[in-house]
Design a binder for these strands. Sequence first.
DNA 1: TGATTGACAGCGT
DNA 2: CACGCTGCCAATC
Length: 106
Amino acid sequence: MQKPVSVFRESVYSVAKRIPKGKVLTYGQLAALAGSPGAARAAGMCMKQNPDATTIPCHRVVASDGKLTGFAFGDGVSTKKQLLQREGVAFIGDRVNLLLSQWHPL
DNA sequence: TGATTGACAGCGT
DNA sequence: CACGCTGCCAATC
């Protein structure tokens, strides 16, 4: 089986799909779990591509400060916030409480 | 092949 | 606490 166009992207999507409900992950963590720590920007780009928005909960990926960025869906970050809060994610104003909702991989 | 962009992260002011 | 600048990585033009 030939190598995919980029292993990085597949890893990112794979990890994103692994994020449990009620939990969130930062782009830095996502990139680190994907195998490229520090590639937070590249990870965000892959989320933007989002080839499978139905299977990839990209809305569970937030910035390192817990701030909701990107996600040009509905009202944008507003819809994303409502979605996460509905999943059971702890929010602090307009930011996610990473202390309680940041996902810890097994 | 090289340069630019982008849903970031960290630190300083 | 809010804002700005720099650095890192991968994808795209």
